[in-house]
Amino acid sequence: MRVSFLGTVFHRLAILAYLLFALFPLFWLVKVSVTPNDLLYSEGIRLWPSRTSFEHFRFVLENSAFPLFFRNSLIVATSTAVIVTVLASLAGYAFSRFAFRGRAWLVALMLLTQMFPLVMLVAPIFKMLTPLGLTNSLTGLVIVYTAFNVPFATFLMQSFFDGIPKELEEAAKIDGATQFMAFRQIILPLTLPGIAATLGFVFTAAWSELLFALMLISGNAAATFPVGLLSFVSKFSVDFGQMMAAGVLALIPACLFFLLIQRYLVQGLTAGAVKG
């Protein structure tokens, strides 16, 4: 199909406009983080400050509890992502391949969990976790995040498994593999893009979660960075420079993570399996 020159131009312009729109807040975050305090208000609406400095970054790293928050977030988000992805892979595979009693009910039940506003659940969860000693603990957060992310991640993984032809497993079984070997040696390698997507999705969700982190954690020891960011807001002022610097730092792991998995996200691994 031949696309006209004007069409191409319009297409590119539309993408550019979208990118500008989507990335502008990020740009602003970076811009404020490198603006020295004395210029913060005087040059508030300039696209780039006349002088830049990394003083906010230095302050955040050296004088705040931010490294601790950062470490906590990393532990919580990574554990959640790994646990959820393992559970969701197994559950998604079962939903995709096996017919069993109560399957429809399980799916409906999982869907149901996605229908409640999370705020409604804060109080009961707090009530449940307190006697177990899981408030103010990273383990408690991981459990809560896992519970909330498993249903969606399972649906996600199921759709990836659905996309893999059943004949591949049948061929493997005839070649001499057990169901589990077929899953591990044939299906799982082909689901890497799905696993990467699920890991990324759950990691970012857990990384940026605020509501439960705020409600279940008090004090700095187990605070995650979204909670930590709030500590830059005091009663009388907001320290924008430091807050933005912390925000930029918080972006780094998420970026690194996606860099790591993007190879799998874009790769169409199943090409060539069956006729096509």
């Binding site: 032809p165 004949e167 591949l168 049948e170 061929a171 493997a172 079984k173 005839i174 070649d175 001499g176 593999a177 057990t178 044939i186 082909l190 691994l269 199943t270 090409a271 060539g272 399996a273 069956v274 006729k275």
Partner: peptide, 16 residues
């Protein structure tokens, strides 16, 4: 796997 048969599928079902 315990029947010792081989099968050729319509879709070939090669491991990609």
């Amino acid at each position: 796997k315990d029947r010792d048969i081989a099968m050729v599928f319509q879709s070939y079902a090669l491991y990609p």
